[in-house]
Design a protein around this nucleic acid. Sequence first.
RNA 1: GGGCGCGUAGCUCAAACGGAUAGAGCACCGGAUUUCUAAUCCGGUGGUUGCAGGUUCGAUUCCUGCCGCGCCUACCA
Length: 662
Amino acid sequence: MYRYLEQRLAGRLLEFLKLHYPGASLPKVVIEPPPKVELGDFAIPVFPFAKPLRAAPLKIAEAIRAGVGPIEGIAEMQVAPPGYLNVKIDRAWMASALAADQEPPTSMAAGKILVEHTSINPNKAAHIGHLRNAILGDTFVRLLRYAGREVDIQNYIDNTGVQVADVVVGFTHIEKKSRVEIEALASQPRFDYYCWDLYARVSQWYAQDKENLKARSQTLHNIEDANSETAAIAEVISTAVLRRHLETMDRLDIEYDFLPRESEILHLHFWDAAFTKLKEAGVLTYEAQGKNKGCWVMRRAGTTSTTEGTGETEQSDQISEEDQKVIVRSNGTVGYVGKDIAYHMWKFGLLGRDFAYRKFYRYPNQHDCWISAMQGEKDHPHFGDVAEIYNVIDARQSEAQNTVIEALRGLGHNEAADHYTHFSYEMVALTPRCAAELGYTLSDEDKSRSYIEVSGRKGFGVKADDLLDQLIVSAKHEVDSRHPQLTDGERVSVATQIAIGALRYFMLKFTKQSVIAFDFKEALSFEGETGPYAQYAVVRAASIFKKAAIDPDTFFQDSSVSSVAFTKFLTGDNADEFWELWLAASKTSYIVNQCISTTEPAYLAKHAFQLAQLFNAFYHRHPILSETDESRKQFLLATVAIVRRELIRTLAVMGITVPPVM
RNA sequence: GGGCGCGUAGCUCAAACGGAUAGAGCACCGGAUUUCUAAUCCGGUGGUUGCAGGUUCGAUUCCUGCCGCGCCUACCA
């Protein structure tokens, strides 16, 4: 409701200003929450209007206040020095809207959105860095869906690249295993862990003797022949590891709709189609000499082609070597960026080709995840061909992402390029202390750093399943001591919900551009600004209703509950402490919208924490069930019901559920 | 060298679009409830927002320079 009121207010202000100051070029009306509740619920700084309107800020504010007229849902406006217009919400109006759970639909863009996230190389176990990606991506999907958008979730699978080849080398050259032996291993429970260790060994093996690197290039070459034994082995490994990744993410309630694989992008000739168009449009140029002789290159994103001195722009067939990004190697093979360009043309329906599809993984809720195939099933959902895309990919790849966007522009697809968002975030690294705890020996230089980058190649990192297991054990320990009357199964179930809440909250509380220096102590914490803190608030709210034998979900449908009666508690003396809760509860969709427009889910975590914090203080200060004034008791219960509802919603968007007890 | 980003309390982080007294959590110190379960609450200590200029009514936020740190800058992905 807060969002709805804000939009209504903004509209009326603009209307008023246009009418009373015709012709003046007006700056954007900024509406922000004031720093304190006493000041009001919306604040409009009017300083920016002083110059264009040739009037003092206070005069403008007063003119608006006096002239804008009544607005439904707004109680009053006050002018505050040195130049703010503070607006107070009609609390009775808001109380009734919240009690009725009204959220008027807002105008939003149409069209399907595609979110790509996770995209882990299928050659080893997922680690905490991948968790951040998947949790950010999954939460963003939930945000979009909460806002009413239709979303497809894709997880790109690079099953033909160097990383998979390296593990194939490990099995065939170091362990000298046959395909049958590998298949047997691949069906073991945590095959991805096996690959994790093997991958690290392969890197060492390469380092021991440069000659060993020949095995890599030979293997890479063999994988390209789809009918070879090597390709079959790669397929076994990458498919088994991929399945493990889906299982790991499934533990966190993260699902996908479609898994496009690089092998199909190659074998269904997506690249050939893209290559033709890129050459025709002049996006790619052939280098006849220099360091990139024999390659097809593109201008690196972010570089400009101005010639010194004249200031004239060169024709694009002259790119300095530094600014060249190799798309097609001199041996004719295409690199990752090229395949990504083809894939993104497909995403926007610009390629003129499509995958074949088959079912790959079924979730407990019966939802199917599809995978690309050479020959697929006849009936399948329609993927791709979307209006907007978001790619959840870490910041290290922003140059590659921008190169893909520039390629789309070069092809004349500006509309697509404008709707291409690289959802960029920073990596998860380990604190030196954490690295030491894991048994890694650190150089003195490393010890002095604030964080150390995770390295799959070195096997240096915290595996996703291990972290989740540890969180569950730790939560179970707490649950055991608090709820000995429950069965072990029930306690495991509660502990699992808490563990997921802690993990998902932990990954979302940091803003995207902040490097997370991972530390077990912090990640395993269930107190303070954590997921369990928010879950606990909901459990407390629920227990009040349980004891009162009232269903909080249908509380407001009871005819004896009247939101009109609440007004007296929201507007009298000392009402601000209650109003703060109602106001915060009204902001969920406002926050969701803010998260989407800034691609920053951290605001949602803040919102959950704020609601929980306000509730816990309220809970402590006001005994509810023992309240003797019946109308006051109803009001307090209503407050609990509203905050509980919004907190549950907010947590659900973060992918966090609330256990029955804690 | 070039590109991108970061630097805020002892530690980890907030403060979207420039706005009112820069806020949390952890840690530390001191308190609270024989209650709807303390995974809670209340209070306290803790800041020259890296440094120096500039822009303006107003700068943690924008601009310039410097210092420090990270990532990218492969015919890897």
